[in-house]
Amino acid sequence: MPSIFTKIINKEIPAFIIAETETLIAFLDVFPLAKGHVLVVPKKEIDYIFSVEDTLLAEMTLFSKKIALAIEKAIPCKRVGVAVIGLEVPHAHIHLIPLQTVQDINFTREKLKLPAEEMNEIAEAIKKQL
């Protein structure tokens, strides 16, 4: 069964897409820990990050760096944190989270609920920095 990320990749459900290549896509997390929380996902459905072939994993890392640098310019933060949990959705992905404190990357915290208009503004602000 396709993951929710596959449905986003196939444009079957809407998403706030930041950037995409032939093999990767980056979009805002709809349940963010912080404003500007982005997910980087391979378009190929692979369940576990360490099952991703080496060249694609390297590509994910470099793509994530490019997105993180754009987040830093668009969202006031001290750093962009990186996390790979792998339990939430059975599709490999990297979390890029703007941080003020270490608590900002605590996945047990309550997630933000932002209106679509604000999510769109955040996505556009990040895209402008690419």
Rank of each mutant, 00 (worst) to 15 (best):
M1F: 07
P2A: 08
F5S: 01
K7G: 01
I8H: 08
E12W: 14
P14A: 09
I18R: 12
A19N: 02
E20Y: 01
T21A: 05
E22T: 15
F27C: 05
L28P: 06
V30L: 12
A34I: 00
A34V: 01
H37W: 11
V38W: 07
V38P: 04
L39G: 00
V40Q: 01
V40E: 01
V40M: 02
V40I: 09
V41Y: 02
K44Q: 12
I46C: 11
I46S: 14
I49L: 15
V52N: 03
D54A: 13
T55E: 12
L57Y: 14
A58S: 13
M60G: 08
L62D: 03
S64L: 04
S64T: 02
S64H: 02
K66L: 00
I67Y: 06
I67L: 05
I67V: 12
I67A: 01
A68D: 05
A70W: 00
K73Y: 06
P76R: 02
K78W: 11
G81N: 11
G81D: 10
V82D: 07
V84T: 09
V84N: 10
L87S: 11
L87P: 08
P90V: 02
P90D: 13
H91G: 07
A92Y: 04
H95L: 09
L99E: 14
V102H: 13
D104Y: 07
F107Q: 05
F107V: 06
T108Y: 06
R109D: 08
K113Q: 13
A116N: 12
E117G: 08
E117T: 10
E117K: 15
E124D: 15
E124K: 13
K127T: 02
Q129C: 06
Q129F: 05
